[in-house]
Structures are given as C-alpha cells and as structure tokens.
Design a protein around this nucleic acid. Structure first.
Lengths: 151, 151
DNA sequence: ACCCAAATGCGAGCTGGTTGCGAGAGTGCG
DNA sequence: CGCACTCTCGCAACCAGCTCGCATTTGGGT
C-alpha cells in the first residue's frame, strides 16, 4: 500500500462532510445524500445507480451533480472509481478498494485479494520500473461457471 | 495459449479475404483497405485512426463500416481489440496480441510479456477457477518516468 | 441579516460506438 | 455472359456515459 489513501480512510458521512468543510467546501443536501448512499452499501455502484437512489429521496438532485460530487470526493481521496468492463464506471469508498476479476460472459465481478497481484507488481517494477495499480481496471476472463458455455 | 486464436494466425491480407469468402462473406474494397491498414502496422490502432488512413485512399469508406468490419474480423479471430485506458479501444491483429501496462499520467503503453501474468493466472485459476485474459484490459499504473511527477 | 463564492439544476454538447434503412455490388449458377 | 440473390455499404439518426456553460440558489463566515 502506498499512494492509495494516505491516511484518508473515511469513517462516516459526518467525517467526510467535516473534511469537505475544512477544505472550504460546503455541506449541501446533494452531498449528504450521496455520501449516505455510498456509506449504506458495500458494492459497486454506478453513478446512475447512485443518482436513482438519491432521487428516491431528493428528486431534483441532478445526475450531473452526482458526477461532480463523485469527482470531488475522488479528489478528496474518499471514493475511487473502477472500470469493471465495457459498461459504466463503478464507484465505492476508497476504504473498500480492491482488485477485480470480471467474467466476460456473465459479467460477474470477483473481488480478488491484493496479494494475488504482488508478484505481478514486483515483476513490473523490476522489469520496467512500472508501478501497477491493479484496482482501477478489472482483469477480464472467464469464471468457473462460464468456462463451458456451449451446451 | 488456448482459446486465443485456435490456429487462426492470419498471415496475409489475401489469406483473410479467402477465409472471409469461405464463410460466405464477400471481398469488398472497404475490407481489403481495412486489412491492408491492419497488416501494414504493428501498433495499437483506434477505429478512427484506421478509418482516417483508409479514407486517405478510399474517401467514402464510412467509419461505421470500419466498426462493422472490425467486429466481423474479430468474430473471425483475425483481430482483437484492447482497452488501454479511458479512451477509445485499440485494434490489432490477433497474432500481435499481448498484455499492456499503461501509465495513468503520460498514457504510454508498455507491452508486457505474457510470462509476467502466468503466476497471476495460476493463482486466479486455483483460487477462484477463474481463467484470466490479460490482453483485453490494460493494467493501469505509473511508469518509470512519471513516478516522481511533483517537483 | 448580509454577502459572495461555492454549489446546484438544467440542458446542450461531446466522444465513442451502434443501428435501421434503402441503394449498391460480389458471387454462384445457369 | 447475365441474372438473381443476398451480403455489404454509406448515411444519418441514435445511444450511452459523461462533461460543460450558465443562470440561479444557497451555505456559512462575519
């Protein structure tokens, strides 16, 4: 672990809002709603998904506001986004960050332990001086259940 | 290597055109141009890029035709596409297939030897029964030159 | 209570790619 | 060679997933 979250583990909605305020930011309804949506689930959420949940409670929070705030929270180190395939990006709290194995057939996303990547990381470092971030893009492949898809 | 290209190493434009014809497909100018563009370079080409080259010689080949033919060639096993980051997909002959390490700062794409992924592949297989395809999505990270970007 | 920068809602715009359609052109067959 | 069959093409419209400009609203320090 290194540049990942640099001591920025977000612990609660209020914690993040405080940090936002400390930075000169403001605590708005849209932000509180977004953070509540993010803290209330552990999974991979798309922006649209989050917007839909928020709009259930606060109908005129616009999706562009959701994008802007996800961006802002990402700059703050509170959330990260990852690409799990051809579809939309998924967002989650940086404290839940991990790598993914995504099945190209059925789309299932397996959360892989980081240790699985340490040897690849070492190799890339020693061969190319390249420091990998395995969290951002999923590794494509075929899952157990799809390995024999043609009946 | 296994499902990758199943004996389908394309050797020349005419070889592929013959295979296309054998399948009930037709040999058209757009297809010949596309194949020539693909065979004449080794790098990562975007659809737009290929279209531009083709349009230099055959101006009314439409980009949608390029997309459709890239698709078709992919189904044939002649080309593959890979995602090297947030931008457009890149296409190349399946015989040039390889993995990539892409720098999130400067965008450079390093072609990584497949052996670098064998241990990750083994781990994923034994832990999850998951068969990885490291060619399709690049691994993000930071390259040698960008590792100390803040002066 | 006042003020003003920060944030919002809204719609238009952008990139990358897909699709429906009618016209046109390869290819097998006679 | 010429016909017919159907594959493919060019085109424009469309779609997803974001992003941006702008006028308006609002949080919060004083």
């Amino acid at each position: 672990m290194s540049a990942l979250a640099a001591g920025t583990g977000p612990t609660s909605v209020d914690d993040v809002l405080a940090r936002l305020r400390a930075r000169g930011g403001r605590v708005t309804n849209a932000r509180r709603q977004l953070l509540e949506a993010l803290f209330s689930s552990t999974g991979h959420r798309t922006a649209e998904d989050l917007a839909a949940e928020i709009q259930g409670r606060a109908p005129d929070v616009h999706i562009s506001t959701v994008y802007r705030n996800l961006d802002e929270l990402e700059r703050l180190g509170v959330v990260v986004h990852a690409h799990l395939g051809h579809g939309p990006a998924t967002y989650h709290l940086s404290s839940h960050s991990h790598s993914h194995l995504v099945c190209g057939e059925c789309g299932v996303a397996i959360e892989a332990p980081d240790e699985m990547f340490t040897r690849l990381a070492d190799d890339a470092e020693s061969s190319f001086g390249f420091h990998i971030d395995p969290h951002h893009f999923a590794v494509l492949g075929t899952c157990k259940g799809c390995v024999k898809p043609t009946p």
